[in-house]
Nucleic acid binder design. Structure first.
Length: 1029
RNA sequence: GGGCGAUUAGCUCAGUUGGUUAGAGCGCUACGUUGACAUCGUAGAGGUCACAGAUUCGAAUUCUGUAUCGCCCA
């Protein structure tokens, strides 16, 4: 006997093992088949996966399983990403917390060793998560962005770009993370608003002319940066600047609502007052700047110029701004424009360096205090205002980012970016949904050079050896010596002049990993760059490095370009764009044809899921509770075309198993009181032993409950089918001879198969899930299976019913398999035991659902008339049920029913009379044009199909209930009739709307009127009857 | 400041090119358990489609503006 529940806890493991043993997910080069390839967006080994990854990977698996069934050689290539900064940061933080050591204490090799063991641990966990979700990756091809094959690809690419002159070294202002001591990209910086202060300083003017001020006032939120000031700027044309602001404000006022107007007018007045008060002074300063006046920078006693630059805003502060080119991005621009010196005042660890000897060694915070105190002592400190300041924070270390001038390697993006833009504009790469193309093109269009150095130890080390020389001839000699060491494809050397120092740098790039040339290059006095490459550099190569490039493997020839990339929108620029340009550079071909961008999962409060917030849900917790199929089905339903979806998150109380909504408050609490059973449970924040004494609650979402129920429904429908197949004999299905309900099922299967097949190609995951859910539940279970019950009991119909039923279930299993692989596989096995040969022309099916062929949509089975007729039947059933419910007739009672209809409907319904029993607890006693109401009658008219359904209430009558029902019905009818009448009496509607629409309205109005009269008659009769009793 | 998106039932979401009474799941109410399934069945209640204009005979749907929320970029 088959159990009445699908027990995923015992079933899923063995199923996965069988697939694995049979090599179902392994793909090989098969020239006679068309390839379909997906490379996984490699998850970071920094941490475990949450439901965002769950969604991403479920969708990929749906695609790959469907394509595999469709006969493609389907390869889903798995792997993980080393995630340079993130992973090193995690390991370093642990090192500090647990052993109070820094990376410098243990050294490069030991740190990298520790990160490798971290990687091993998390890679294992991630792969385990994917496997439990049922992901049918080709595990034999598992890759890691830092493995040898990927390293070879990185090396080959870097060398190629270097040789093409697309890699150069430059000083740039970078986002410096003083904790991790590395530059981070803009994308790894998050701006937060903090409370801070706005300090006003006075810088003395050197030798002011008569009438000129003795001091210039500036203001800053970061006082310590004044140590690196190299100028003070004033606007070159303050009066014009004021005029421009006034013009803009007036423009806004003209368009503003009354409410905003007064506020804007106040702003305008303020600007005017300011102009009156300050314009003369600012113009004088402008003249002083033109005249070359200098200021004395206090504390460091450096002469700095007063310059005219538009960065100074007359409307803000004193109208003058200090310029610190080495520590502020805007000031850097001013420095470039005005050729100012750039003085770096920071050591890599964020302490003040020897550029300001009096402050050397102080941290930024200490220096800030000291500078303010010293300026006050010197009488140069003005007001200190409170102010909200925007502060850049490192995503990785959560410490403040310092703009910092450093040597970095860059990839010149001009040509590369253009090629990636062209690939999308020309349609070689399709981004779906299309709206994401804009962001991609805009970002690439800026063609900003890509800084690829990271001052880290975890990553691909930059393969450049360098040295600096005073004389160009000397540098050229070294270049010549290095170039002679190997062929031009092995070694490349360049000289780069440094304008600032007047020195000459020699850069030598080596092509091979562990090249024998390394010691020779080092013997020339060159040193290898200590930095590693940005992680995205190696992930940019992922679609081809994983297939063996730079080797010309047969896998590469066969599986590349890949078919589809499935990812989330936050890395369209960081990753997708870079894969496109690297694929084009290295292979001359785009890496994939379709980029499908799926939604981002938010929690119930609309916030992104993350482990650090506590709202991250581990797919394993959901699988433990609801099963892998429920997880997958639930996630697939979320994948609509929108960009965010909300998934409320709950704790599952370990005592009573009730779900407790997660709120912003309780999600960071170490222990929570269960509101249902009043017991306590702990959370991921539990720290003390006291907390840990309470059992820990899993974090899940009830959204998966529906899906779990669906799995159960499917299981039980299959169980019914299986229980009735003991004497099954395969026989061809002859459509012409089948009764209505069978032909209806085949017609619906044809449509559903077509829709689902199209849905896969159009990435309509949610719609597919809905179509299959509705079909399986509302049609296959609620109607087909119910109708099959009496037929299976009838010996003359049993065999044909078994064949169609087995075929229907078979098709449903195949269509559902990509979304719910485990339960469908399990049923498939049972079905195979009883009906190993099945189908329209019975044939032996494959051993696994996973390897079964995808159903074909039989267009010839689609029959509109049949579907319309069947829906008439469904309407009649619905009418009987409504009457029964309104009369509170007990389900075990069978009610006599009379159906007044035309001859055609009579012919249709006559053979289906016996199904009224199981579907509506009714017995049809009269059917056709002559069917009459009963003496004690409950009627329901179905005017759209010209039928009336009557139920004999002789034994059941509840006059009050019936009157209530009829009067409610009458009310609805009257309302609808009024609406229609007013519509049709509107001359505009009648004359302007298309005639068929008007005609339809007229018809439906007359139907409603007929119905109203009949209901009124029923009410009167009933009232009479009630009063006569 | 710019871009993208969202706003529909208590909650989470559908809603095709404008056209009957705007749908589903969960939750809620009532009734119901004799072999597919209570992880179920049947019926029901529940909506000013964020707001304001415009276009149209007709707008959840098209356009403009506003508000709120989220994300990305500066």
């Amino acid at each position: 006997m088959i159990p009445n529940r699908f027990d995923h806890t015992t079933a899923a493991g063995p199923i996965a093992a069988k697939w694995d043993d049979a090599g179902c997910s392994h793909a090989e080069v098969s020239p006679d088949k068309e390839p379909y390839t997906i490379v996984i967006p490699p998850p970071n080994v920094t941490g475990a996966l949450h439901l965002g990854h769950g969604l991403n990977n479920t969708l990929q698996d749906i695609l790959i399983r469907a394509k595999r069934m469709q006969g493609f050689e389907a390869l889903w290539l798995p792997g993980t990403d080393h995630a340079g900064i993130a992973t090193q940061a995690v390991v370093e933080r642990r090192l500090k917390e647990q052993e109070n050591l820094t990376r410098h204490d243990i050294g490069r090799e030991a740190l990298v060793q520790r990160i490798w063991s971290w990687k091993d641990q998390y890679e294992k966990r991630i792969i385990g998560q994917l496997k439990r979700m049922g992901c049918s990756c080709d595990w034999r091809r598992l890759r890691f962005t830092l493995d040898e094959r990927c390293a070879a690809a990185v090396r080959a690419t870097f060398f190629d770009l270097f040789q093409k002159g697309l890699i150069y070294r430059g000083k740039r202002l970078v986002n410096w993370d003083t904790f991790l001591q590395t530059a981070v990209s803009n994308d790894e910086v998050e701006n937060v608003t903090r409370k801070g202060h706005f300090y006003h300083f006075r810088y003395p003017v050197i030798d002011p002319k008569p009438g000129e001020p003795s001091h210039v006032e500036i203001a800053t939120t970061r006082p310590e940066t004044m140590l690196g000031d190299t100028a003070v700027a004033v606007h070159p044309d303050p009066s014009q600047a004021f005029a421009k602001i006034e013009r803009e404000l007036r423009g806004k006022i003209a368009q503003a609502s009354a409410k905003e107007k007064s506020e804007l007018e106040q702003q305008l007045e303020a600007i005017q007052r300011r102009q009156d008060a300050m314009l003369a002074d600012l113009e004088m300063l402008r003249e002083m700047a033109a005249d070359g006046r200098k200021l004395m920078l206090p504390l460091v006693e450096r002469e700095i110029p007063l310059v005219a630059d538009e960065w100074a805003k007359p409307e803000l502060g004193s109208g003058c701004v200090k310029i610190t080119p080495a520590h502020d991005p805007n000031d850097y621009e001013v420095g470039m424009r005005r050729s100012l010196p750039m003085i770096n005042i920071l050591n890599p660890d964020g302490t003040i360096n020897s550029a300001a000897p009096a402050y050397e060694g102080l941290t930024i915070a200490q220096a800030r205090k000291q500078v303010v105190a010293d300026l006050e002592a010197a009488g140069l400190l003005g007001d200190i205002e409170d102010r909200d300041i925007e502060m850049p924070l490192s995503d990785r270390s959560k410490t403040a980012i310092e703009p910092y001038l450093a040597d970095q390697w860059f990839v010149a993006m001009d040509q590369l970016a253009q090629s990636a833009m062209d690939a999308v504009s020309s349609g070689q790469v399709d981004i779906i949904p299309e709206r994401y193309e804009k962001g991609y093109l805009d970002w690439l269009g800026e063609k900003r050079d890509w800084p690829v150095s990271r001052q880290l130890w975890w990553g691909h080390r930059i393969p450049i050896w360098s040295a600096t020389y005073d004389r160009e001839s000397e540098a050229k000699q070294v270049v010549a010596a290095a170039s002679e060491m190997g062929a031009s494809g092995e070694v490349d050397a360049k000289v780069q002049a440094d304008e600032e120092t007047g020195q000459f740098s020699v850069f030598v790039c080596l092509r091979q990993e562990d090249s024998p040339l390394e010691p020779k290059v080092e013997a020339l006095g060159l040193e290898r760059d200590p930095d590693v490459l940005d992680t995205w550099f190696s992930s940019a190569l992922w679609p081809h490095s994983t297939l063996g490039w730079p080797e010309q493997t047969e896998e590469l020839a066969y599986f590349y370009p890949t078919s589809t990339l499935c990812t989330s929108r936050d890395i369209i620029t960081l990753w997708v764009a870079r894969m496109v340009l690297m694929g084009l550079n290295n292979l001359g071909e785009v890496p994939f044809h379709d980029v499908y961008i799926h939604p981002t999962i938010l929690d119930g409060n609309g916030e992104r899921m993350s482990k650090s917030k506590g709202n991250g849900v581990d797919p394993i917790d959901v699988i433990d509770k609801f099963g892998p199929d429920a997880l997958r089905f639930g996630l697939a339903r979320l994948a609509t075309e929108t960009q965010d979806v909300r998934l409320p998150v709950q704790y599952e109380c370990p005592h009573c198993e009730k779900l407790v909504d997660q709120t912003k408050k309780n999600r960071t609490a170490p222990v929570v009181d269960c509101p249902s059973c009043k017991e306590r449970f702990s959370t991921q924040w539990a720290e003390t032993e006291g907390h840990r004494a309470f059992p820990k609650a899993a974090v899940v979402s009830e959204k998966f409950e529906t899906s779990r129920n669906f799995v159960n429904k499917l299981w039980n429908a299959a169980r019914f089918v299986l229980m009735n197949l003991d004497d099954y004999q395969p026989r061809p299905i002859d459509v012409e001879t089948l009764p209505l309900e069978d032909r209806w099922l085949l017609s619906r299967l044809a449509t559903v198969t077509r829709q689902v097949t199209e849905g896969i190609d159009q990435f309509k995951f949610s719609e597919n899930a809905r179509i299959l859910y509705d079909f399986a539940w509302d049609e296959f279970c609620s109607f087909y299976v119910e109708i099959a019950k009496p037929r299976l009991a009838d010996d003359s119909l049993r065999a044909a019913t078994q064949n169609v039923m087995a075929h229907g279930l078979d098709t449903l299993l195949r269509l559902l398999h990509p979304i719910m692989p485990f339960v469908t596989e399990s049923i498939w096995e049972y079905l195979g035991q009883l009906a190993p040969e099945r189908g329209l022309q019975p044939a032996k099916v494959s051993e696994f659902a996973m390897t079964a062929s995808w159903p074909t949509s039989h267009a010839e089975h689609f029959d509109e008339t049949i579907e319309r007729q069947f829906s008439q039947f469904q309407e009649v059933i619905g009418a009987v049920r409504k009457i029964r419910a309104s009369q509170n007739i007990a389900p075990r009672e069978t009610v006599p029913v009379a159906i007044r209809c035309d001859a055609a409907s009579q012919a249709l319904l006559d053979p289906m009379k016996s199904y009224f029993g199981s579907l509506a607890g009714a017995e049809v006693v009269a059917l056709g044009p002559d069917a009459k109401p009963f003496a004690t009658d409950a009627p329901l008219a179905l005017p759209s199909i010209d039928m009336e359904v009557h139920v004999d209430l002789e034994k059941f009558i509840d006059v009050e209930a019936e009157l209530t029902r009829l009067e409610k019905l009458l009310g609805q009818l009257v309302k609808q009739i009024q609406g229609k009448e007013s519509k049709l009496s509107n001359e505009n509607f009648v004359s302007r709307a298309p005639t068929d629409v008007v005609e339809k309205e007229r018809e439906s109005l007359s139907d409603l009127v007929v119905q109203r009269e009949s209901v009124q008659g029923d009410i009167e009769r009933l009232k009479e009857k009630a009063s006569s009793n």
